[in-house]
């Protein structure tokens, strides 16, 4: 092998190292709905970069990954927007300029600065939302009865209710049933909420995560599911067309996910371009109909077919948004108090 050949081989090997790849790679911590090639390829081709994504499923998972990474290893993250304050408080997020993003195309309730800003500084851009609902088997339960949130405590449904094992939407639903506004909850409200949750537990057959409650609905161990996202029923609706969901007339709970840029990112311009791309009408259509799970796009100009809009209940959205409450905006201390209370509910006999 002559010298010039050796140099070419050396250069080729160098090109394969992570350091050499870094300049052409945008590193994203993302949920599974951002991983479809159809969503990522247009951005990759337009910018000549590769999206290196790592699948995470919670803010705790983000913190766990960051704990094993060097500052600047990651550029963009997808997060549950309720955690904006927590991550901004840890100085992990880059302040953003609202002018760079299409806020005029996002419904005012979804774009609410209370969800995306801390101390007047914007940190997160809403990208997708949906609802924690009351789902039910309409072959076994009167759909009209399910429009009243108080029905889940009705003794006639004893042993037929499943509770979703996530305390934030469950506590909000109980607050709504008690006539309280979720956004105004404080520690003083917790004893009454705990009692009501324990009463609901007594009326329930089980409390479980997505897979377990799906199993309960599919096997007939439960006919009603409180607090689960609409994706819970969507996942098994093909096999059980009688499954449906409703947002109670007293109000519902809205989940909302967002994009943010890491303060330590070394590619902030490219990161900003990526966020702008994801909230563009074309990408929003693909994100809303992701192969992992569907959800409403934040951008009301999202490119979707009529059929897709019908599945997403597009025309119902103004009414749903109006009566739904976003996840609680919590301090870490209040979050811990809620978690401890949820543990007490689960331990209650």
């Amino acid at each position: 092998m002559n010298i010039s050949k050796s140099l070419w081989v050396g250069a080729a090997l160098l090109a394969l190292t992570p350091a050499a790849q870094a300049a052409d790679t945008l590193n994203v911590l993302t949920w599974c709905d951002h991983e479809d090639p159809a969503l990522l390829e247009p951005f990759e081709q337009a910018n000549g970069v590769k999206i290196n994504f790592k699948d995470i499923d919670s803010t705790a998972a983000i913190l766990a990954v960051l704990g094993q990474s060097k500052p600047g290893d990651w550029d963009v993250l997808v997060l549950d927007q309720t955690d904006t304050g927590r991550l901004a408080g840890m100085k992990l997020l880059e302040p953003l300029d609202a002018k760079d993003y299409p806020f005029s195309d996002i419904p005012a309730e979804i774009a609410d600065p209370k969800l995306s800003s801390v101390g007047g500084t914007l940190y997160t851009i809403p990208e997708k939302f949906g609802y924690n609902t009351v789902a039910y088997n309409k072959a076994a339960v009167d759909p009209q009865a399910m429009t009243d949130i108080k029905a889940i405590w009705d003794p006639k449904f004893k042993g037929r209710v499943a509770m979703y094992d996530y305390y934030v939407p469950m506590i909000e639903y109980v607050a709504i049933a008690l006539g309280k506004k979720p956004a105004e909850l404080s520690e003083a409200d917790l004893p009454a909420i705990k009692d009501k949750l324990i009463a609901l537990k007594a009326n329930s057959s089980m409390i479980g995560d997505v897979t377990t409650v799906q199993q309960a609905l599919a096997s007939g161990a439960a006919d009603i599911l409180v607090g689960g996202g609409e994706w819970v029923t969507a996942g098994i609706a093909k096999d059980n067309p009688n499954l449906d969901y409703v947002i109670p007339t007293q109000g519902g709970v809205r989940w909302q996910q967002a994009l943010a840029i890491f303060a330590e990112s070394k590619q902030k311009d490219l990161a900003k371009k990526f966020v702008q791309y994801i909230v563009s009408p074309e990408a929003q259509g693909k994100l809303a109909t992701s192969s992992c799970y569907w959800g409403m796009p934040a951008n009301s100009k999202a490119v979707l077919s009529d059929e897709q809009k019908a599945i997403l209940r597009w025309s119902d959205q103004p009414g749903y948004i109006k009566v739904s409450h976003p996840y609680l905006q919590m301090t870490p201390e209040f979050d811990k108090a809620l978690q401890a209370m949820w543990a007490e509910v689960l331990q209650a006999k």
């Binding site: 919670s58 803010t59 705790a60 913190l63 766990a64 509770m163 094992d165 057959s205 089980m206 409390i207 479980g208 377990t212 870490p332 979050d335 811990k336 978690q339 949820w342 543990a343 689960l346 331990q347 006999k349």
Partner: peptide, 19 residues
């Protein structure tokens, strides 16, 4: 069915939400 919690479940609660 989360009718009562065992210690490993409480450990997971600490990790999954708050890390």
């Amino acid at each position: 069915g989360n009718k009562e919690l065992l210690l490993p479940q409480v450990i997971m609660m600490q990790i999954q939400r708050q890390l």
